[in-house]
Design a protein around this nucleic acid. Structure first.
Lengths: 365, 365
DNA sequence: AGGGCGACCCGTAACGATACAGTCCAGATC
DNA sequence: GATCTGGACTGTATCGTTACGGGTCGCCCT
């Protein structure tokens, strides 16, 4: 039977001529499709000269491997999926996530992988989204954040040997690839320096929840206090949503009950703003009254008034780049053991560093 | 020849059993693969009872169409690609973009399409990214923003009949699907209301560039002035980058040269902050001195001090949802003519509306 | 009775890439 | 000279899906 449907199907609507495929190349070179296929992936059974000849022709004819064909034959999709968690309130989620995605996508650029984004919608659990990727074979690897110590997504992937890289550690026994920030180290550092500066009553704000990094923050806090011979006071370990409002109220409650507190370690950009608002509401000026606010997170918001803020900065782009690296390494067959990265925070005493670089993001206190 | 490679290939690593496919269903039902395929897409040649039977079995056996097979056979990838433009400075690009992506992805969820993200990296032009999508058949449709009147990406797609939806209008003669905000209408409204409140000297800040919306803003400004019988003064039409620094300086220059200005229409969240900073630097208090700042954009930053700000808000999620709708409609064969949406701005006189909903984003002036 | 006509279903050939089993031939080995 | 070896290639079947051209069968009409 003659081809009856080829003209309408599979042909590129983009270029006038059909997109070059292995057969095109093979015919053009007088080789078989098999040899061309092998040559393009540097198969050991093909002569070096032939390989060179094939690659040259491929470049010349603009050959691009057909992802559908590869998927069908090998099961590989040449996609990496990143899960997007919806902002809970308002239009903005984690604002640094965009930089992470951008650098992840850019990091995949030199490979033949592309980035798929899947939003965790409405009624879905975090596991649902990951399961969808695995079951529907949407991607060859998945990247997710907001890990918990016994993360069910990580367990799910480990059980079925589905490649993944998490942004955040877990406490699972099986090693897996991850990128994380050194929250414990940074909090230890913060406490130690505050203690060295004479602070005796140092508060820590954490949100409720079971995310792994919260444990690291708490451990860092306790270790820092112990190393500086400061007593632990449960009243100084606060739990509050990281919204401006909740952290403002938490700071206000803390300070109106106990004026001896001279330092507050916050958990993200928003809580810095909230705590500063809370301090102001209590009539406290950080500079005049010697109170230090310690912030953590991505690029901080602009601060107009010169309050005393020490900031531990997470370079978000490095996260994305490292996620990309680890993902590609996993997909290339490297064992997960070596693909574990704990990134240091960058400490700065002067938020004007961010202010004066024309941070497009900032608003001002 | 017997199958020799099937076990290792194409089988799902996820479930123990192989993933159900059309053949599985066909065997299970005693039908042919063809009929099953047709039944699943409600082909008119299949009896309704058979369709029901097939769909039931498909659900029971957890059939998921293999995207690779579809891609290979039909050329369709079942993907929609959104182009991500890298933030120019710092970690944050357009912060509302995340909400847009999230709602776009969520809007595609009920369909069988998934969202591909492609970052425009390093040396790439805007066209490069779109061309990559089309040439490499990465997706069946593309979504991009930052349109210009003679947008080359739109022209490229129109020429090759590649489906796309732009966020932003163009002035191309061929109609195409887009979503945009009504900048002209909103600026007209702003000017009219300012004039009604007695403002005679109203300034407008636009960034440099050729993006389409800038023209609409300018037209709205001129139309608004004309309708209120106010004279045009070129000195009141400012050009400045939308960074805090640049808009601060622009406002300062304007006000120190000419104290008669009583209203400034800004172009985005950042410029509101910058202009307010500029006013403060000139010793101007908006409330006391009767100066009005008009802001435009996504969710605004929190403002601590009670400055007089009128804000035209773009609901970002609606953009994403509409983009999803138009894309799916295009892919379903609807003509682009009807897929053009101009969304109204939501005006508010009181930014506390945003402040008190616990905007996770805000920082405070 | 038999021809015609729908309604409903099936068989086959692709789409592009790749795993695997051959094939072919020059050179080495006995 | 026959046999073996290994390097460099080719042929074929296959992944899951769908377009297309047939089939089959019951029913109606003349």
């Amino acid at each position: 039977m003659a081809r009856t449907d080829g003209a309408a199907i599979g042909g590129s609507r983009v270029t006038g001529r059909r997109q070059a495929n292995l057969r095109t190349l093979a015919d053009h070179l007088g080789l078989s499709v098999t040899t061309v296929s092998r040559a393009l992936k540097d198969g050991p059974e093909v002569r070096p000269e032939t390989i060179a000849r094939v690659k040259e022709a491929a470049a010349e004819l603009g050959y691009v491997p057909n992802v559908g064909g590869i998927h069908l034959r090998t099961g590989r999709t040449m996609k990496v999926c990143s899960i997007l968690y919806a902002p809970e309130v308002g239009d903005y989620g984690d604002p640094g996530f965009l930089a992470q995605v951008e650098s992840l996508s850019a990091g995949l650029e030199p490979s033949r992988y592309n980035l798929l984004m899947l939003a965790q919608t409405g009624g879905q659990t975090p596991l649902d989204a990951v399961r969808k990727v695995a079951e529907q074979q949407l991607a060859d690897a998945v990247v997710f954040s907001r890990t918990t110590p016994l993360d069910e997504r990580a367990r799910y992937c480990l059980e079925r040997d589905f490649p993944f890289v998490s942004f955040g550690r877990t406490e699972l026994l099986t090693p897996h690839a991850f990128v994380d920030h050194d929250d414990e180290g940074a909090v230890v550092d913060a406490v130690a320096r505050l203690a060295a500066d004479g602070h005796r009553r140092i508060a820590l704000i954490n949100p409720a929840g079971t995310l792994t990094y919260l444990g690291y923050r708490l451990r860092g806090y306790q270790r820092g206090l112990a190393e500086s011979d400061l007593p632990r006071d449960p009243a100084l370990s606060l739990t509050a949503d990281l919204s401006v409002r909740a952290t403002r109220e938490a700071a206000r409650r803390l300070l109106s009950a106990d004026r001896s507190v001279t330092a507050i370690i916050c958990a993200n950009q928003m809580s810095v703003v909230g705590v500063l608002e809370g301090l102001i509401a209590c009539g406290i000026d950080t500079v005049r009254d010697g109170v230090t606010v310690v912030g953590f997170g991505g690029m901080p918001f602009r601060m107009l008034s010169d309050q005393r803020v020490v900031y531990y900065y997470q370079p978000q782009r490095r996260v994305g780049a490292t996620l990309a690296h680890h993902t590609l390494a996993l997909l290339a067959g490297e064992p997960a053991e070596g693909l574990t990265t704990v990134l240091p925070y960058e400490r700065t005493d002067d938020l004007r560093r961010f202010r004066d670089d024309d941070s497009p993001m900032g608003a001002a206190v």
